[in-house]
């Protein structure tokens, strides 16, 4: 039980359901996610963990035929209510994807893209500062500071992913969502990203979907286990991994299903 009492709840999901056309992908999820913690979402393929993640910044809106029910609140404000503007919401909730997806632009423009569209840094000097700060936070500054004009697609896989993290935190979000950010990377690049996540936890609330249970155990404070669109178990990572209450969870963690 790591300081769970002290943490305040950042994201509150209540009765969240998701339909893709006729098919139901999530069956009423109730889940609280704490600020300044890393929460890992685990479960077998197709269990709905990525779908749940995409509910938090309303990325499911993009998908045709996708309907979301229930409520997701950030700082006690329902993000599915009419007053919420999805564009502003996404400036508060950043996201990093499975496959590094730098825009076909320079490294600088990749990071500057978010601040530019939101008008966060009106002057060039401010923008330069944001870019430098973000790249530093993402641990990429030293590697790219001499070639900010080089295309982002020219970096290595691990560097690209850190560039995407820099791009996400450049708009100064409160929450960062990560959808299997290391699945396309080699073990060394993965280690670098994991360290970075541990760093970022101090300033951001992080929700990460991962296939690797070792990774979940290494980096997260809390873990939620999803199965067939249901939240099966949720609790402090240590507890989940050492004495899971649910049989399904145990079977998955010990490698019997998955």
């Amino acid at each position: 039980m790591v300081n769970s009492e002290a943490s305040e709840v950042k994201i509150k999901a209540r009765e969240v359901t998701v339909h893709y056309g006729e098919a139901r992908a999530l069956h009423g999820i109730d889940l609280d996610l704490n600020a300044n913690e890393v929460t890992a979402l685990i479960g077998p393929s197709g269990c709905g963990k990525s779908t749940f993640l995409r509910c938090i910044n309303r990325m499911n809106d993009v998908i045709e035929g996708c309907r979301v029910g229930g409520a997701v609140s950030i700082d006690d404000q329902n993000i599915y209510s009419d007053e919420i503007d999805v564009v502003e919401l996404r400036a508060r909730v950043g996201m990093v994807f499975q496959k590094p997806n730098p825009f076909p632009k320079s490294i600088y423009d990749n990071v500057a893209y978010g601040p530019r569209i939101h008008g966060m840094a009106p002057s060039r000097a401010q923008l330069d500062a944001v870019v430098e700060a973000s790249l530093k936070r993402a641990g990429l500054w030293e590697e790219v500071k001499d070639r900010l004009d080089a295309p982002g697609t020219g970096l290595s896989g691990g560097q690209q992913q850190r560039l995407c993290i820099a791009r996400a935190i450049a708009v100064n979000p409160a929450i960062v969502l990560m959808d299997e950010p290391c699945s396309a990377l080699d073990p060394i690049a993965t280690a670098v990203i994991e360290e970075l996540i541990e760093e970022l936890r101090r300033d951001y609330t992080i929700v990460i979907v991962t296939h690797s249970m070792q990774q979940a155990a290494r980096i997260s404070q809390r873990t939620a286990y999803f199965h067939l669109g249901n939240l099966v178990e949720h609790g402090p990572t240590q507890a989940i991994f050492t004495k899971p209450e649910n049989q399904q969870t145990e079977a998955y963690i010990s490698g019997k299903i998955g």
């Binding site: 503007d85 564009v87 502003e88 569209i117 008008g119």
Partner: peptide, 8 residues
């Protein structure tokens, strides 16, 4: 922010 959003 509101003005900018409106413009966008």
């Amino acid at each position: 922010r509101a003005a900018r959003l409106k413009k966008r």
